[in-house]
């Protein structure tokens, strides 16, 4: 069948890609790309919410949401994340004004709130596991730990990213590249807060109700 591959005359001029890319500003598409990543992340959380919704009644005779969840604790956690959101906003404003010291300070405060959030969540997890309500107890608890744990992992990586960026900003200042990175982390951080709204509403509040 060699003849079928033969290139007809004149076809060699057909171009399947642009010979020369026109100029793109470095990183001009980063934010759109990052936004698309966040949207796909949103779908992961949608799946986890759906499985939690399906399994929330399947307690296998074990403890249910009403017995396990401690609302004042969750309220404290929510406050931590909300505070970290506004302090990150202040960090972005300081960065836009070119104030390096203030940016680093606000980023550090954001990181501390993030760590408080994680600490409280890990305490809650260990408390549940000690009470015999670990992820292996029932389908309800498996899906609870998966959903809330995935959110916690996101926050953990957000903090790692935050510390990395603090080092970057301290060393290289607030150039265009670092501004772009700060902007991406801003989207990531606020996105995690949006997911947390879903968690405290559908898992904790409606669970206890």
């Amino acid at each position: 069948m060699g003849s079928s591959v033969q290139v007809p005359a004149g076809a060699s001029e057909r171009a399947f890609h642009l010979a020369e890319e026109h100029e793109h500003e470095a990183g001009s598409s980063t934010l759109l790309g990052f936004w698309l990543y966040l949207m796909s992340d949103c779908l992961i959380f949608a799946m986890l919410f759906a499985s939690y919704g399906v399994y929330s009644g399947s307690t296998a005779g074990g403890p249910d949401a009403k017995e396990l969840f401690d609302l004042p604790f969750v309220a404290l956690n929510t406050a931590m994340l909300l505070f970290s959101s506004i302090t990150y906003g202040f960090a972005m404003i300081a960065a836009e004004e070119g104030k390096k010291g203030a940016t680093l300070r606000w980023l550090a405060i954001t990181g501390v709130f993030g760590l408080c959030f994680l600490g409280i969540e890990l305490y809650e997890f260990s408390h549940l596991i000690h009470e015999g309500a670990g992820p292996q107890r029932s389908a309800f608890l498996s899906s609870f730990f998966t959903l809330v744990g995935t959110h916690g992992l996101h926050v953990t990586f957000g903090i790692v990213w935050l510390v990395t960026l603090m080092v970057q900003v301290a060393k290289f200042g607030l150039g265009a590249a670092n501004m772009r990175r700060l902007m991406c982390l801003s989207l990531f951080w606020h996105f995690l807060d949006v997911v947390w709204i879903g968690v405290f509403t559908f898992v904790y509040l409606l669970g206890v109700l």
Binding site: A75, T78, L82, S85, I86, G89, M92, I93, F200, T201
Partner: peptide, 21 residues
């Protein structure tokens, strides 16, 4: 977004969190 916008967003969020809790 400005500082004012963040503060408005924050205050609205606090109210909208406090009510359901």
């Amino acid at each position: 977004g400005s500082r004012r916008e963040y503060v408005i967003g924050f205050l609205l969020s606090v109210v909208l969190t406090a009510i359901p809790f």
